[in-house]
Design a binder for these strands. Structure first.
Length: 277
DNA sequence: TTCCAGGGATATA
DNA sequence: TATATCCATGGA
């Protein structure tokens, strides 16, 4: 166990597998900000405040049980890192981002977020999501929740273009419609391949976005999302060259199996933070 | 000014 | 099945 609870606060003792900045800055989540020494994260309709204190991480949340699951605190990352470090290429990335964890985010929120992320850069993704939540999110008293499906369904393509989605506005509107009409999001017990095919029927969701949804929304461990950074990772990894991102993703997950998602996250962070081109 | 960003849809062969 | 082109937007 890497955490305890005291006075309603979560205390993470093992900071060798919990680094706030690394977790937030590894491209899996975009709604957070740093104020003084406190990091504020809003996930779904829950707010979390994180800070370092006496060599521990203190988490204050409006919903403690939610936060324990969200930050994946029941999972020990040391065995995962040990296995990954048997591969020399991955070792340096694991050491560099050793406090990274994979968050357990709300699937609907992840679908919306990563449709917006396509062919986009992280600062602009953050801006769009902030405008989205500010305008459609329920006021939780000091912070806005991530908008609910029904609230998003009231707005049209023009609105989403106004807050900056560009050509992704149409995809988002059509996806919202499809979910509202009963498209199943209860994919936790689905095998990865079936869940991926299912998700890829949504407008704006291709292989890469689907894999991000599977990893960040359903904690499927056998996916390796290939974006522009991970294409460079693949180039350097030592497997036979591939032209398409799909084949790179297939090759990586075949090689790394249930460690794929974790490996991808350490490697993405290492390449992007060091601007390895 | 051109290039790029956690890519996807579409047309074409 | 595989490749080429287009797509908004803002920062570098």
């Amino acid at each position: 166990m890497i955490y305890g609870i005291q006075n309603g606060q979560i205390i993470v003792f093992d900071t060798s597998q919990f680094d706030i900045r690394q977790i937030l800055d590894s491209g899996q989540v975009f709604r957070y900000q740093k104020l003084e020494n406190i990091y504020k994260i809003v996930a779904k309709n829950v707010i979390c405040h994180l800070k370092y204190e006496n060599d521990h991480v203190i988490i204050n949340s409006s919903d403690t049980d939610f936060a324990i699951n969200y930050f994946d605190l029941e999972r020990d990352y040391n065995p995962i890192k040990e296995k990954l470090k048997k591969n020399n290429f991955i070792t340096k990335a694991v050491d560099y981002g050793n406090g990274i964890r994979i968050l357990n985010q709300d699937p609907f929120e992840v679908i919306v977020t990563f449709i917006i992320s396509a062919n986009n850069n992280i600062p602009r993704i953050k801006g769009i999501l902030n405008r989205l939540c500010e305008s459609l999110g329920e006021d939780m008293g000091g912070h806005k929740a991530f908008p609910r499906l029904e609230e998003m369904a009231k707005r049209d393509e023009h609105f989403y273009k106004q807050i900056g989605l560009g050509y992704r506005a149409e995809y988002l509107v059509r996806t919202i419609d499809k979910i509202r009409e009963g498209f199943s999001l209860d994919l936790y017990d689905w095998d990865t391949s079936s869940a991926r095919k299912h998700l890829m029927t949504l407008p704006g969701v291709g292989r890469k976005v689907a894999d991000c949804i599977l990893l960040f929304g359903y904690h499927k461990e056998d996916v390796f999302p290939i974006d522009t950074w991970c294409r460079r990772v693949y180039r350097d990894f030592g497997l036979p060259p591939q032209k398409s991102c799909e084949k790179m993703a297939d090759a990586m997950s075949q090689k790394l199996k249930n460690l794929s998602g974790y490996a991808q996250q350490y490697l993405f962070y290492y390449y992007r933070d060091n601007k390895i081109l």
